[in-house]
Amino acid sequence: MLILTCPCCGVAADEIELAPGGQAHIARRGPDSTDAAFEEYLFLRDNPRGVHFERWRHAMGCGKWFHAARCTATNEVFGTYPAQTTEPPQEIRDRIAERRTDQPKDSRA
């Protein structure tokens, strides 16, 4: 079973305690944006077979949102970090680079 440590309350939570929230770090578009920008914001996803930055909610625990870096092919977890970030922190990227020599430094690229 997938276990993620909630950075808000520190509990190592089983996936049945958590609610998945999809790809992280998607910038919300404003009312003046083009249709293409809205399409990107609402629908287009990276969907990588590899490192994925994603949102989770500790639904059956403290209730807070947070972020996780996880490999979608193996479920290896590279770490969790607070929701109040617009990109993965350096520390998480370093850990990914350390363990995944096959991955680009910023796997969103």
């Binding site: 999809g22 790809q23 399409e39 629908f43 996803r45 969907n47 990588p48 077979r49 979608t72």
Partner: peptide
């Protein structure tokens, strides 16, 4: 399920999650 992987090779994105 691998459409996202192939789309990445082709250089576009899809409204799909696997």
């Amino acid at each position: 399920g691998h459409s996202g992987v192939l789309a990445q090779m082709a250089g576009f994105r899809l409204p799909i999650e696997s």
